[in-house]
Design a protein around this nucleic acid. Structure first.
Lengths: 352, 352
DNA sequence: CTGAAAGCGCTAACAA
DNA sequence: TTGTTAGCGCTTTCAG
């Protein structure tokens, strides 16, 4: 790794009594070397403690690596925007090695768009890919093709159960729900909790936060078995409808609404409502540092946010592939679980 | 930054009608170039969008950069151990560019040792230094000398009011105390809080956590003006004495001890006592992720820890200097305040 | 199967 | 003040 050492490929060649061309051949396993030479060279390398200077290597081999990132498309201020920032900083790192990084987006509610994203990436013959998977079977198929083409890939956000990937960077979803419940209840008994969810209209797509919600519910069941949990569904595209539903919730419930949680990044839907109705009597907890969530946190309409550095995940993914491509190193850990950050009004301004 | 571009110093030379030697001269401001050529070259560089390939640059100039880090010495498991880990990962990064990184430690209770650390670093003619300052005047003097020698330096942990430094990476101390108070009180009125402190015996050395304690007290005064705050001092080197003092605290106080805070990293002193006496009725909050603090957190003798990635600070410092040395970039932000992490038993295992 | 040689883009003498 | 030249350590033809 350290290029500060002095012994070069020339030293090795000399010591082994061959030319550097031959040394290079064994270094890169491109055959055509007699067993005798190979062994001799390997031995000398070992003995001298030779490590290649990959700056010289990069310079000499004008290869053209490129990394593709496949993530859901998004609007400004949404969850995946942060991931894209991470891609940007990953791109800067990779760029230093002359490696290009491109992002291709898909509609997370549309399998076809995911498939065509994968196809177009495959067609571009990437040197490596990072992928935030949403569709299980399609991803599995894609992963298999990548493996066959011998291109390394790393998962971010979530991963599948196959294990051909180079690395994974994501949040421990179950634990994040568990933690969230502790933060919401403040470790004290609670009578009733309202879980606000998003209507997933199209084609019964799987809910990516189901594992998190399970963690949340498990905590409640374990600590406060008597606590009631009520689900309420909001339409992400229809503000008026959301207000109607929430009005119903606040008016209709015999006991006042006190504890509210959302297991996805849209807690600002609730915060907006509370702000407009000037309701400050709820304890509200949600996830992720969208700008709108942060505002709600600062203004006191949300008490806490569980956050993760999803930008770092993307950046780490790109770094991992870059290092793999350039210096053939694999990440020290294959599965990397991001820390879960607890944000409140007093520490949120120092986040990001 | 991106070396993927194709235009080289040769292209520039050709387009400007000079030789690459001359281009190199203006690139590195090493004079001896006519105003005419300089302007022409600068213009061409602009026009072509030339950016240097610093791998070639590194390769060609076999410079011998080295970075020195000056931090307090420590025992296993103490606060500064984490910083050293960060130095290690910074060393890995710098090593890729053939830059060596060395750490020199000083006794944070001994000015002389700090001075001699500085002197020895100065004598080694470092290319850059990162420093965790503990002694104001001596650091100021040191900084001045570095500036004169034209060697870049970055502060970690805390910084001084002068501004010759390249960057600073540290925690917002005041805010961390403020946050801590919020966590300790859980946002609810409290009658009395015990602030446990460390006896600073020698020479009345300044307490590095005083700013943090101020933040803590300000929060309490602002939110709960009637809350009593009592200071208790512990001897870091004498366990028996600590137990005596704490026994006195728990026995002597008319009202039961309920809220305990320590503004430094030694909350494990309190936790050890509580564990031994099997006291589980206190809410205890402290700072930093020492292994002993984490155990206490897991076992429930400490309810929360405010933490920072001090390893990242050191690593970032080294990265900043490396990038400055190699590609002449300055950090995008000069003062970098680390995020403050709130740890409890449910998220601490995913930290670090 | 192997060696020789020509670069990769840049730096740093050394001449001029 | 400037051009020329010899490398830095490695990759990659191209001959043998």
């Amino acid at each position: 790794m350290n290029s500060g050492n002095k012994i070069t490929i020339n030293d090795v060649a000399k010591a082994a009594g061959v030319s550097k061309g031959t040394v290079d051949r064994v270094l890169h396993n491109r055959g055509e070397v007699s067993e005798r030479s190979r062994e001799k060279i390997l031995h000398v390398i070992e003995e001298l403690g030779y490590t290649p200077n990959f700056y010289a290597s990069i310079l000499a081999s004008r290869k053209n690596f490129n990394i593709s990132c496949i993530i859901p498309e998004f609007n400004n201020g949404e969850f995946w925007a942060l991931t894209e920032k991470g891609i940007d900083s990953g791109r800067e790192y990779a760029g230093r090695f002359g490696i290009g990084v491109s992002a291709v987006m898909y509609d997370q509610y549309d399998i076809d768009s995911f498939q065509s994203a994968c196809e177009s990436v495959l067609a571009s013959e990437p040197s490596g890919v990072v992928i935030a998977p949403m569709f299980r079977n399609e991803t599995l198929k894609f992963a298999k093709e990548l493996t066959e083409m011998d291109v390394p890939y790393v998962y971010i956000d979530s991963k599948l159960e196959e294990d051909g990937y180079l690395a994974y960077y994501g949040m421990p979803m179950y634990q994040s729900g568990y933690l969230c419940a502790d933060i919401l209840t403040d470790g004290r008994p609670v009578d009733k909790i309202h879980v606000i969810r998003i209507e997933r209209d199209k084609r019964g797509l799987s809910d990516p936060t189901i594992t998190r919600r399970t963690g949340f519910l498990d905590y409640i069941a374990e600590h406060y078995p008597d606590c009631k949990v009520e689900n309420t569904f909001l339409d992400p595209k229809d503000k008026a409808s959301r207000y109607r539903v929430l009005d119903g919730l606040f008016a209709g419930d015999p006991e006042p609404v006190k504890y509210i949680v959302m297991c996805n990044s849209r807690v600002h839907f609730v915060a907006d409502y509370l702000r407009d109705r000037n309701i400050r009597t709820c304890r509200v907890v949600g996830f992720d540092v969208l700008e709108r969530n942060l505002s709600a946190l600062r203004e006191g309409f949300v008490q806490a946010l569980i956050a993760q550095h999803s930008d770092k995940q993307a950046a780490a993914a790109i770094t991992a592939i870059t290092d793999y491509l350039i210096m053939h190193t694999v990440p020290s850990k294959k599965d990397n679980y991001t820390q879960m950050d607890i944000l409140n009004r007093y520490n949120c301004d120092y986040y990001l």
